[in-house]
Design a protein around this nucleic acid. Structure first.
Lengths: 252, 252
DNA sequence: GACAAATTGATACATACGTTTGACTGTATC
DNA sequence: GATACAGTCAAACGTATGTATCAATTTGTC
């Protein structure tokens, strides 16, 4: 390793990643073959395995490529806001906006690869096995916990568990609305065109209004838990040898 | 067709459907082969194509089998509540509970096939192409519109568009939390065990509190839409010949 | 019990897949 | 200009897939 190798970071690798994002985002992981990708990227069939070692690894790289900037944007904004506050109580609407805006905006920007992120995210969530990888989970969890803490400071009357529930609801709402447009237009159809699901600003405003109000709602009365006997758990003895995306749930 | 054929509705067909629900729910559509299904169902390989004509059709049948009772339960409850009201203004919390409860409860009932529904639903949403089929979309849309109408009666100050947005957020929150548990336990991990995502009653209570409060929130201020020029739309010339689940987006 | 239809069963087919291999090419380093 | 090596390329391997075929068997009807 005499000197740092430049060699333009092997443009083939970048082209493959680009093509993979585009194709995976338009179809799904299983529906896109390595041949599709290398053909779209004008690369050789072997290139994927050479640069990424396997398809599963390519998928992880794709997810990482898209998820990291969003989470970083969220954290950067949150940190900036908190230093600005200088210990004061944060404004809930502002927090929600910071949480929600990067995702929505990136996913509506047709000039970048962000449009593909919602579907990939939904796929990664829907498919079994640890597709995302622990690194991304930890990255997201750290970000999430910081937001939960901040929201807790904005709503001192809610205990932390409550906020965790509502954080999850927030992510669910966001993912659902953002994954809707650009192809399916479920909500637009349902509402007979009333809801313009392409308008990023509108989506953000609606999300902020709904989620903030939801967060401020009174916590539900807690019931006693009857805590019934645990049902016999696992009864799934399924194996998979194929090289499908899902095969690896090993120890779950 | 001289007389009605009984023949116990060909138990093989039912066994295949059962096995398919279980296997698809534990893995995903592409990761489960017809051979996996017929083997699990103790049926012959040809049986799937005989009874369901194709794998894609089997998938649609699976989704229909699980979705229909939930939507019907929702509508039955809603109708019962509305006749009970006899024209009076409905209670928002009650409406949300009616909307949310059947799904949550079914998906937590380990004795039935409902546990598999969330993942299948998420998969069907994440995958491209009209996987669900127009019949199911229409069934769901009719149900949704009736709820939107009812919620509009409970919140006369919100216009319908607003309610449509928030209905979508509600579904997103529900789907996200219900698809979480039974395997991944994302929220339980994130909250360090604070949130018990197996407790159906708790989930329902949290959802009702959050969503009701969100629904009651003030509508966001509407901005002027700059309405910029439409970006050149389609640039996707991708074909698929394989028999993967997704292949058919024909005219999009 | 005979007939026809419905269902099951074993096998074959064609193909698409992820990955591997090994030769080849360009380029940086000395 | 020789050496080393990162990258590219074409071809092949082994396997898993959905579906089709057609004979065997079961079932319902008369």
């Amino acid at each position: 390793m005499g000197r740092k190798v430049i060699r333009s970071e092997s443009t083939t690798k970048a082209q493959i990643l680009d093509a993979a994002i585009r194709l995976f985002g338009n179809r799904s992981f299983d529906a896109v073959s390595i041949r599709d990708i290398t053909s779209e990227a004008k690369a050789n069939l072997g290139a994927v395995n050479y640069h990424f070692s396997s398809k599963l690894n390519l998928i992880r790289e794709v997810l990482r490529t898209l998820a990291t900037p969003i989470n970083e944007a969220r954290l950067t904004s949150l940190n900036a806001y908190e230093t600005l506050l200088n210990g004061g109580r944060p404004d809930l609407e502002t927090l929600i906006r910071i949480l929600v805006e990067p995702f929505v905006r990136l996913s509506k920007d047709r000039s970048g690869p962000g449009i593909y992120y919602p579907r990939l995210m939904m796929l990664a969530r829907a498919l079994p096995g640890d597709l995302i990888g622990s690194y991304l989970s930890e990255q997201h969890d750290a970000m999430a916990r910081q937001f939960v803490k901040a929201i807790g400071r904005a709503l001192p009357n809610l205990d932390e568990e409550e906020i965790f529930w509502r954080y999850d609801f927030t992510i669910g709402s966001t993912l659902n609305i953002v994954g809707d447009a650009y192809r399916s237009y479920r909500l637009k159809r349902l509402s007979a065109g009333q809801c313009d699901t392409d308008d990023a600003d509108r989506i953000i405003d609606e999300l902020v209004a709904f989620v903030s109000a939801g967060m401020r709602g009174a916590a539900p009365a807690r019931r006693k838990k009857p805590k019934m006997a645990r049902a016999t758990a696992a009864k799934n003895g399924e194996r998979r040898t194929a090289t499908r995306v899902h095969a690896k749930q090993a120890a779950e």
